[in-house]
């Protein structure tokens, strides 16, 4: 994996909220077909990094390039079309639409755009893939939390993104759901998808990630294989909070 081309190049990005510096001069890269984990204590700025990449709000400074193309000044919908898809830490579904239409939404406007029957059959495949084969036409608000997370994942996949951002997609699952969830992401990775994974579940990090970065207070404190960063003393002390 490590010898692939660079897909996403994040250079020196910062984000200030008023006086609070949530992300502070962070740089990292993601290669094609790589699964990169971002870990760090609560409030360390992981979600903010995801928000900056997906264009949820503008950068304070820095540069983010997707295959050489600068994303920093683009609005969220352009970034999505350029090939960045995401899920949200707190699930965001389209409550008034059916499960099917929730996923079609991702297929119609995303990186690769489909319409009508093509979009629907694509959405159907993805729903089967994430394990919602029997719930296509239910109202999405009737689903359980885990199923809503599945819908969100299918929606993110529906536009055939270049890179997939998963923000604690595995959080809140019970052990058996977690197992299925990890397998699902693993199969996406085997297909050759590029993924950035924000997780607190260390098992998932160990199993899924090729490489990890650790952030604390918006700064990069370690980078390397999951095993090496998780045994790094600075990382351990950051998690224990005695920094």
């Amino acid at each position: 994996m490590s010898n692939g081309r660079t897909l996403l190049d994040v250079q020196n990005i910062s984000k200030k909220f008023g006086g609070l510096v949530a992300v502070n001069g962070l740089s990292f890269t993601v290669k094609e077909q790589e699964v990169l984990g971002i870990i760090g204590p609560n409030g360390s700025g992981k979600t903010t990094v995801m928000n900056l990449i997906s264009g949820a709000f503008p950068l304070s400074s820095g540069s983010i390039r997707l295959m050489g193309r600068e994303l920093a000044d683009l609005s969220a919908h352009r970034i999505a079309r350029a090939g960045v898809a995401r899920t949200f830490q707190l699930v965001r579904i389209l409550p008034g639409l059916s499960v099917m239409d929730n996923v079609v939404a991702g297929a119609v406007f995303g990186h690769r755009r489909r319409w009508r029957t093509e979009a629907e059959s694509h959405a159907r495949d993805l729903l089967d893939r994430v394990g919602l084969g029997d719930k296509h036409y239910q109202p999405v608000s009737a689903l359980t939390y885990i199923d809503q997370k599945r819908v969100e994942l299918a929606r993110a996949l529906a536009g055939d993104p270049q890179i997939l951002l998963l923000d604690e997609w595995l959080a809140g699952l019970n052990p058996s759901e977690l197992h299925t969830g990890i397998e699902l992401i693993e199969s996406l990775s085997r297909e050759g998808r590029t993924i950035i994974l924000v997780e607190h579940v260390m098992d998932a990090i160990r199993t899924l990630c090729h490489r990890c970065i650790v952030v604390n207070s918006g700064q990069l404190i370690a980078e390397g294989t999951p095993a090496s960063v998780l045994s790094d003393p600075t990382v351990i002390s950051a998690y224990l909070g005695d920094d």
Partner: peptide, 24 residues
């Protein structure tokens, strides 16, 4: 049309709309 579908999505969740690629 796509426009109408986009509008429906915006009415549901504008953040999602932007992140699936809709020029809201």
């Amino acid at each position: 049309s796509r426009l109408g579908f986009a509008l429906k999505i915006i009415g549901n969740e504008e953040t999602v709309a932007r992140h699936v690629g809709i020029n809201t």
